[in-house]
Amino acid sequence: MSKNLVLQTDFGLNDGAVSAMYGVAISVDPAIRIFNLTHEIPKFNRWEASYRLYQTITYWPEDTVFVSVVDPGVGTDRLSIVVKTTDNQYIVTPDNGTLTHIKKHIGIVDAREIDEKVNRLPRSGESYTFHGRDVYAYTGARLAANVISFEEVGPRIDVEAVIGLPKPEAHIEEGVIKGNIDILDIQFGNLWTNIGRELFHEKGIEYGETLEVTISNGTHQLYKNSMTFGRSFAESRLGEPLLYVNSVDKLGVAINQGSFAKAYQIGTGANWKIDVHRVEE
C-alpha cells in the first residue's frame, strides 16, 4: 500500500485542528505523504463532502487512503468505517452519507467498522468530540503506513448498509431534460448539475443551440432564461449565461466571467432542480 494520505474536513484552517491530524499521522509514520483535498466543506454539509470525494478520487493512484471528516453526529452511535472502492482505494469516514456518490458512481467492494479498542489514538479514550484526530487520522495513517491491513480495521459490515443520502437521477420527461444542481464550482460560481452529457446526445442537442433553462428550489422558481450550449466560455460574450460540459462530464451553467450562483442565490442538493429544453419545445 502507498503512503499517500488525503484529508478532507469542514474544519477550515483558522485553528489547529487540521494540524493536529497531520501530527497524529506523522507520528504513526514520518514517511507518510499527506495532502489536502479540502478543509473548506461548508459546516456539516455531508452532501458536498460526498461530491468532493467523487470529483477527486479517480485521479489518485491505487491504495491511496482518504480521510473525510464532516461529522455532525460525532459522539453519537453513528458508525466509524473504512471502505475499499472498486479502484482499490480506501476512505475513512463516519457512516453518515459521505459515501453517497462513491457508492453510486464508483462502487464499494468491502466495508469495515473501525474497532476503536485497537484503532484509536492512545490516551484519547475520554474524548468524544474530535474523532477526526483520534480515530480517523490515526486509523487512516496506520492503514496507509501498512501498520494494519484493511482486514485489521475491524469487523466487516454489509456494503449495502452503508448510508446514502437522497440522490435523484437526471432524466428526460416529456421532452424536457430534468436534473438537479449537484454542487457549485465555488471559485467561479458556476453550477454543476447531475445531467450527464449523454442525455444531450440522446436528445440530439448540438453545440451552438439555444436552450431554455429553468431553475427552482422546491416549488419556487428562481430563474428562467434562454442560453447557448457552448464548447467553452470563449463562445459567449462577457456577462452572458451559457451551458457547457464540465470537468466531470456533466452539464454546467455559468455566466461568462461572473458568478451565476451569487447572481441568482442558487444552492445545491436534492431540492434544487434544473429543467433544460429546446426553445421551440
Results as ranks from 00 to 15, higher is better:
Glu116Ala: 12
Gly73Leu: 02
Asp63Thr: 04
Val109Met: 12
Thr64Pro: 09
Val118Gln: 14
Val109Gln: 12
Ser68Trp: 10
Ala111Val: 15
Asn96Met: 01
Ile91Leu: 06
Phe66Lys: 02
Ala111Gln: 08
Ile102Val: 14
Thr98Glu: 14
Leu121Cys: 09
Thr98Leu: 15
Gln55Phe: 01
Glu116Phe: 10
Thr100Val: 02
His101Gln: 12
Val82Gly: 02
Val67Tyr: 00
Ile106Thr: 12
Gly107Phe: 10
Val67Glu: 00
Asp95Lys: 04
Ala111Trp: 02
Val109Gly: 10
Thr93Val: 12
Gly73Cys: 03
Ser80Ala: 15
Asp77Trp: 00
Val65Cys: 04
Ile106Arg: 13
Phe66Arg: 01
Val118Glu: 12
Ala111Tyr: 02
Glu113Leu: 12
Gln89Leu: 09
Arg78Val: 12
Thr64Tyr: 10
Lys103Ile: 07
Ile114Asn: 14
Val67His: 00
Thr56Ala: 15
Ser68Pro: 05
His101Trp: 14
Val70Ala: 05
Pro122Cys: 08
Thr56Pro: 00
Ile81Cys: 07
Pro122Ile: 10
Val92Pro: 06
Ile108Tyr: 11
Asp115Thr: 07
Asn96Cys: 00
Ala111Asp: 05
Lys104Asn: 14
Asp110Lys: 14
Pro122Arg: 05
Ala111Ile: 11
Ile106Met: 07
Ile91Ala: 02
Pro61Arg: 01
Ser80Met: 01
Trp60Phe: 14
Pro122Tyr: 11
Asn119Thr: 13
Asp77Val: 04
Ile81Pro: 05
Thr76Ile: 00
Ser68Lys: 07
Val67Ser: 04
Arg78Gln: 11
Pro72Ala: 04
Ile108Thr: 09
Glu62Pro: 03
Thr93Gly: 04
Gly75Asp: 09
Tyr59Asn: 13
Arg112Asp: 11
Val83Ile: 15
His101Thr: 08
Asp110Trp: 07
Lys103Thr: 10
Val83His: 07
Trp60Leu: 15
Thr85Ser: 13
Glu116Thr: 15
Thr93Leu: 03
Val118Asp: 06
Ile114Glu: 12
Gly107Val: 07
Pro122Asn: 11
Lys84His: 02
Gln55Leu: 00
Val83Phe: 09
Ala111Arg: 03
Trp60Gly: 00
Glu113Asp: 03
Thr85Val: 10
Pro61Val: 07
Ile81Gly: 10
Thr58Asp: 07
Arg120Asn: 12
Arg120Phe: 06
Asp87Phe: 04
Asp71Arg: 05
Asp95Tyr: 05
Thr58Phe: 01
Lys104Ile: 13
Leu99Cys: 09
His101Phe: 15
Asp110Gln: 13
Val118Leu: 14
Gly107Cys: 09
Ile81Val: 15
Glu62Ser: 09
Val83Met: 08
Glu116Lys: 14
Val74Met: 04
Thr85His: 11
Phe66Gly: 03
Val118Pro: 01
Ser80Ile: 01
Ile102Cys: 06
Val109His: 11
Tyr90Ile: 08
Val92Leu: 09
Glu116Asp: 09
Val69Gly: 03
Asp77Pro: 02
Pro61Gln: 01
Val67Leu: 08
Asp63Leu: 00
Glu62Lys: 14
Ile108Trp: 11
Leu99Arg: 06
Ser80Gln: 01
Arg120Tyr: 12
Ile91Pro: 06
His101Tyr: 15
Asp115Lys: 10
His101Asn: 13
